[in-house]
Design a protein around this nucleic acid. Structure first.
Lengths: 215, 215
DNA sequence: CCCCGATCGTTCGGCAACGAACGATATCCC
DNA sequence: GGGATATCGTTCGTTGCCGAACGATCGGGG
């Protein structure tokens, strides 16, 4: 397939911003097709997250991260904190703070691992369980709403395409040539005690800026 | 890994997390199809952003927000800060901090609006211009990489589906209708299936003006 | 002129998030 | 056994990000 000029059908769908970008950069050899696909992922994600925070989570005074932590504990039950951190996509340090907040509100309970004094187990309190059982159905209702302009087949297609993008990045090493990235298992050696290493929970958050520091 | 024997074509593709969820919640009337579609948006976005920060932005000591600000100034030229805030999807308060950082590194320049002492104009410095012209091609190269497991037609399809989701949420009213809130004008048009004319810049963190806090 | 409301950018408090450093605990190996 | 090493969660410093409060500035009306 040759790189073709912008078709009118696609042009009609472009946002003003996307048209401006082509007006500004159109003469340079950028990959506008990939740019549209990838950047719209980010845009949709922030839109969805803001929607959820405003419509559902705000009412219960839950942050996104607090919700994801409770959700993980709901699905998988009592967990070691390191598993929760991996599953929610946060660092250990962040999780400590989130758990402190949740514990102060008596939504989760911490306890020391009986066989290993270094580890800490965390689980939902009865109160936390009641909250998540009330919140999640509403959350899922908003997911239905968000996807409601897509047909069922399109929803499946969207999930399918997104999984391929995630797998590409998670498995690959970047622009540097790699092979068979999609099917690889990069999780060898990681002991996560019954939790999948390669695929985090759906509502993972590792979004705010890190500053990997150059210099 | 490619075995299909779980009842549906999609089942073979589910991550372990997604299978566990169905094992835990499968007897409840949730919309698992929408859940897969929407939650994978968030997961892919997190993956993409982390990838970009580590692979490209980190080398230049740029945060994601700093990059988006510079990118907006690159495409649209000198802007009033309120426009930059709207375009990058941050609040005024956040932008102040980001601009302060960028200005301290001499990547952007601030100046008072000649006709209105309240407003502030911001533009790229020559140094900032050099940086973004060096960074963006690499950024776009990583977008190409991220999308490289998709065919061109699939990339277009992905962008198309995501635009429909974003438009639904940005223009729609949600499950529990809210009006007023005002602040931003989500374009006329209302609920037409998918074409979005008032979208912000691609790499935005979308933010709505008024957030009805609980209690 | 001068007040009044509106607008704009900054400041501030609070939470989230990261990486690095740290102390405590467990395990390995001689 | 006992010291070196590894692992785990917490603490610490910095940045991002938000909403609210604030001071400065502009415009209109009396």
């Amino acid at each position: 397939m040759t790189t073709r000029r912008l078709g009118s059908a696609e042009a009609a769908e472009l946002s003003r911003a996307e048209r401006d970008i082509r007006a500004r950069l159109g003469d340079r050899p950028f990959d506008f097709r990939a740019m549209a696909a990838i950047s719209n992922i980010y845009r949709a994600a922030t839109t969805v997250r803001n929607h959820m925070e405003q419509r559902v989570l705000g009412e219960y005074d839950l942050s996104w991260s607090a919700f994801t932590v409770m959700w993980v504990l709901w699905i998988w039950g009592e967990q070691e904190t390191r598993h929760v951190a991996a599953e929610t996509g946060t660092t250990k340090g962040t999780l400590t703070g989130v758990l402190k907040t949740l514990e102060s509100r008596r939504l989760v309970l911490r306890s020391v691992h009986p066989d290993d004094g270094r580890r800490v187990l965390v689980r939902l309190s009865p109160r936390g369980l009641a909250i998540i059982e009330e919140v999640f159905p509403r959350f899922n209702g908003e997911e239905t709403f968000a996807a409601s302009t897509l047909t069922p087949a399109e929803q499946d297609q969207l999930a399918h395409l997104l999984r391929k993008v995630s797998a590409r990045i998670e498995g690959g090493t970047g622009v540097a040539p790699i092979e068979a990235a999609a099917g690889r298992d990069p999780g060898a050696g990681g002991d996560r005690g019954g939790v999948d290493t390669t695929a985090p929970a759906p509502y993972v958050r590792r979004q705010t800026t890190t500053r990997p520091r150059a210099s």
